[in-house]
């Protein structure tokens, strides 16, 4: 049982590392956010789950599950708020970008603020 938990923890930490590598390598804010949000969410879930099933004898599975639920619900919300704010300020997308509907729509109805 302890070995299973250790291996799940190792996989989770690999996902955390890949998320950090994505934040480091991607070319602009939005792509960084993609890597940062997804990989760190699953990485944290696996890391916490692996640690808690490796140490079943302490009986604090409740607090770990609260932490996992909290990460699942708040991580997308904070990244959504950050993406919206950075598009509002006008941070440019990378040169590889194909299209930008939001900018087009904002120019079309310029009078009303989003």
């Amino acid at each position: 049982m302890e070995l299973t938990g250790a291996i799940i923890t190792l996989i989770g930490s690999l996902f955390l590392f890949l998320g950090a590598l994505g934040i480091f390598r991607m070319p602009d804010v939005y792509n960084r956010m993609q890597a940062g949000t997804k990989a760190t969410t699953l990485g944290t879930i696996l890391f916490l789950f692996g640690i808690s099933i490796g140490h079943l004898e302490c009986g604090c599975f409740g607090k770990i599950s609260i932490l996992i639920l909290f990460v699942i619900f708040t991580n997308p919300v904070s990244s959504n708020a950050l993406a919206r704010a950075s598009h509002y300020v006008g941070i440019k997308l990378t040169d590889k970008t194909v299209k930008d509907d939001l900018k087009k729509d904002n120019i079309e109805n310029k009078g009303e603020k989003i």
């Binding site: 989770g12 930490s13 955390l16 998320g19 950090a20 934040i23 804010v29 960084r32 956010m33 940062g36 760190t40 969410t41 990485g43 944290t44 890391f47 916490l48 640690i51 490796g54 140490h55 302490c58 770990i64 932490l67 990460v71 991580n75 904070s78 990244s79 950050l82 704010a85 950075s86 300020v89 941070i91």
Partner: peptide, 26 residues
């Protein structure tokens, strides 16, 4: 380069730090 980049990096850092705190606790 921008403030938003730093905020994204901070977000990722805090989430990894939460995992490390749990690791230290156990």
């Amino acid at each position: 380069p921008t403030v938003a980049d730093r905020a994204v990096a901070l977000d990722g850092m805090t989430i990894i730090a939460i995992s490390l705190i749990v690791f230290i606790a156990y």
